[in-house]
């Protein structure tokens, strides 16, 4: 099982078993422009669906990172600390945090690829 879900606030979560890789969507990185900093939580921090767990900044904009699900941080993507532009280069593969998902049922309330594409088209 390896499926990608999206939130209306433009985070994605790629699910592998009980593990989720959370990042921002390609659409979100385009909207932000050159990413200069990603503020990330620490390993073992708890995240709560709907609450922010960090922030992503470009020169003239910033946006909170909103947790799509409840969970515990098991890894943060340290590569982004040195090179935040990786998010611009490939947002979908440069996840920000890796989490242990607390309640997989929460995934059902997120958007699938198609619904998310429709949302972006409507926003644009």
């Amino acid at each position: 099982m390896n499926k990608i879900y999206y939130s209306p606030s433009h985070e994605y979560i790629r699910v592998e078993g009980n593990t989720g890789y959370i990042g921002v969507s390609d659409y979100a990185q385009q909207q932000l422009g050159n990413v200069v900093y990603v503020d990330m939580p620490e390993v073992d921090d708890e995240i709560t669906a709907g609450d922010d767990f960090g922030a992503i900044e470009s020169v003239k904009a910033a946006s909170d990172l909103i947790a799509p699900v409840d969970g515990t941080v098991i890894e943060v993507n340290e590569a982004l600390a040195d090179n935040p532009r990786l998010v611009n280069e490939d947002a979908m593969n440069n996840w920000i945090i890796k989490v242990e998902i607390a309640d997989p049922a929460q995934l059902d309330s997120l958007l699938d690829e198609e619904a998310y594409k429709a949302l972006c088209a409507a926003e644009h």
């Binding site: 003239k60 904009a61 910033a62």
Partner: peptide, 13 residues
């Protein structure tokens, strides 16, 4: 620089 911290961008955050 580092203006993304500031009120004119982040407002209440």
């Amino acid at each position: 620089t580092l203006q993304a911290r500031e009120q004119h961008i982040r407002r209440e955050k």
